[in-house]
Amino acid sequence: MSTATATADTHHDHDSHATNTGISNNKLAMWLFLSTECLLFGALISTYLLYKTRGNGDVLPTDIFDIPFTSVSSFVLLMSSLTMVLALSAVTRGEMDRGKAWLLVTAMLGGVFIGGQVYEFTSFYREGLGYTTNPAASAFYTLTGFHGVHVSLGILMLMSLWVAAQQGKLTQKNTETVEIVGLYWHFVDIVWIFIFTVIYLIPPA
């Protein structure tokens, strides 16, 4: 909430005034958007599942997965959800310095995850799995790449929040803004929880 009415300001927090559901428009919109994203990732995941054994004679992603490596980067992303929620909790209490720090840590953990993905893609490519090698490869890169783009957008939003906080434009009053970006971030994380199990951990039959 950047523009709050006098009446609204007397309310506690959460900006839940005066909408029929008691949820602010922005938060409701973000949740609806995330619901629709389930259909988007679902389509990509099913495409990969359908194609994961279709190697056309060439190497398959499942042949060259580096589970220990991916486990570490998955863990990093998972923990970034913790730092995100700590950032929100700090901003809620008005501890902006602490909030900024956690925001930055979250963005950095996201950056580590993306770095890991870049490393993974490069080494797969060296092992002969190009984007156009076979349907399995195309589906794998598209799915994980799509997720990577989502994480990168999240990093961008976190950094924007951090800059805004640095300039004093983001204060305790904007708690909900942080919360909404957080929702997006956690969502990207739970998508990865799914991908990690279904794509990486379940070995070929």
Binding site: T21, I23, K27, L28, W31, E37, C38
Partner: peptide, 28 residues
């Protein structure tokens, strides 16, 4: 755990959980 606790679905209005569950169930 992440959805309920970190995304606060536990504390928030049920309509948010419902809308998310709808998308999830439909996709599944």
């Amino acid at each position: 755990l992440v959805a309920r606790m970190f995304m606060h679905l536990k504390q928030d209005k049920p309509i948010l959980s419902q809308s998310f569950a709808a998308g999830l169930a439909l996709a599944t």
